[in-house]
Structures are given as C-alpha cells and as structure tokens.
C-alpha cells in the first residue's frame, strides 16, 4: 500500500486535464451568473405584480427555487452517502459534504425570503406553523451534521458517520415536503398544488398564478436546480480537494 499513516502519497495532477476542467467550471459559472441575472430580470420586470400582495410576492420565485435547490443538494448528499458506504472512496464523501453545505446555504435563503415575505403578509417574521417548524428543524439537522463531522478526528470514521447521518437527516427534508399533507392546519400556502390540496385549507397568502408568473417560476426553478446548485457544489468540491492536497503536501514535506 502506498499509504503512510493513512495519508496517500501525493501525485501531481496532469496539468492539461485540470486546466480544461477549470475552464469548463469557469464557463459554467459565467453561464450561471448570466442566467441568474436573467431570471431576476424576469422576476422583477416580466412577471406581473400580484394584485393583492404587491411587490413582495416576487420573492416567491426565489423562495421556491432555493428550496428545490436545497432539496436536490441534500438529495445528492444521500446518494453520495450511499455510494460512500458501498465503495469507501473519499470523493463520495466530498460530494456529500459539498451537497450539505450548499444545501444549508440554499435552505437559509429559503427561510430568509420566506421570513421577509411573511412580515407584510402574515404580519410577523416568524410563526410556529408546522411547515415553518419543520423547515427550521431541517436546517438545524444539517447544522448538527456539520457538528458531528467536526467532532470526529479519525478521517475514515468521520466520513463513515457523516454518510450515515446525511442519509438519516434526509428524513427531515421529506418531512418538510409532506407536512402540509398530514397537517392541514398549516397557514403556509401551497401555490403549486392548489388544485390538489384539500378545500378546507387554512392557507394565508395564497394567490393565483398568471401564465407569465408560471413561466417565470419554471425558468427560475430550472436556473437554480440546474445551474446555481451544481455550480456552487462544484466550487465547494474543488475547495475541499485543494484543502486535502494542501494537507497531504504538508504531511509529505514534514516527513522529509
């Protein structure tokens, strides 16, 4: 085995492959920024103003898109966790870590925009509604994931436990999604599934969507799911790999 005290020997990456990948990521990031600006433009100028809620309703596009971004990055962490348990390759754990950190950021955006929207509509920044509570618990579960990770020194055990906890934690994401079905007393509106939801809904602040609004929502969702989330995760993975490489070089240097 080429490992010295658990540290694999550093092998310099082929310069060509690394560079082309960097250029690809840079291009991807520029595209993400452009599309994000475009979606903001659509949100502010193309989608009409809501009759009842006024300008603040425009937050809704980011609110939903960031939740689904978080959903997919937490989901990626689950798949990566399962793959790690099967293959024990460290890169899967790096993917899971990136997924959870990016997911936390997006979940925070989701909570923050929701809170800002709720201030004029519900007349409060925060209320202990089932949906809000479950979203907050989801956020805290993933903070607990990072704390658990930091508490373990042995890198292999850290990856192992993190993978398992990352899989378990996804339960709270599913819980947040289904809670409006099992707790109809939530005041959180279900805009997308208005036709599906029961007639006895107590939602406060629901609204009808015009076709322009629907187009804007779909575009924003696509941008956040296919561009913002993967781009952030990609950067995070590169950062982790760079930190890992630095760590290895340090260890190698100290040994000589």
């Amino acid at each position: 085995m080429s490992a010295v005290q658990g540290l694999p020997v550093y092998q310099p990456q082929e310069a060509g492959a690394g560079e082309s990948r960097t250029r690809l990521l840079q291009g991807y990031s520029v595209a993400t920024l452009l599309l994000l600006t475009l979606s903001l433009g659509l949100m502010l100028a193309y989608a009409g103003q809501d009759v009842q809620q006024g300008e603040v309703q425009r937050l809704f596009y980011v609110h939903i898109a960031s939740f689904f971004g978080a959903f997919f990055s937490f989901g990626a962490a689950v798949l990566a966790g399962i793959q790690y348990l099967r293959t024990r390759a460290a890169r899967w754990d790096t993917l899971a870590l990136a997924g959870i950190e990016v997911g936390l950021l997006l979940a925070f955006i989701n909570l923050a925009t929701g809170s800002i929207w709720a201030r004029p509509i519900w007349n409060t920044w925060w209320t202990w509604d089932p949906r809000l509570t479950s979203a907050a618990v989801m956020f805290l579960t993933y903070v607990a994931y990072l704390m658990l990770r930091n508490g373990i020194d042995n890198p292999e055990r850290r990856r192992l436990f993190a993978s398992i906890y990352g899989i378990l934690a996804f339960g709270t994401v599913v819980f947040t999604l289904v809670i409006i079905r099992i707790r109809p007393d939530t005041i959180h509106p279900t805009v997308i599934a208005t036709q599906l939801s029961t007639s006895g809904s107590e939602a406060e602040g629901a609204f009808e969507m015009s076709s322009r609004m629907t187009q804007t929502l779909l575009f924003t969702l696509a941008v956040w799911i296919f561009f913002v989330t993967p781009a952030l995760m990609w950067w995070r993975i590169r950062l982790e790999n760079a930190a890992e490489r630095l760590h290895r070089l340090k260890a190698q240097y100290l040994e000589e």
Partner: peptide
C-alpha cells in the same frame, strides 16, 4: 465515538426524532 461525546447526542438525535 466523537470528541464531544455526551454533548453531541441530543443535538444529533432530537432533529431526527422530531417527526
């Protein structure tokens, strides 16, 4: 098996047990 031991259990367990 972690450094914080006792302190970490409620933090890690309560959110998962919430449903």
């Amino acid at each position: 098996q972690t450094r914080a031991r006792e302190a970490l259990l409620p933090i890690a367990l309560l959110p998962v047990a919430l449903p």
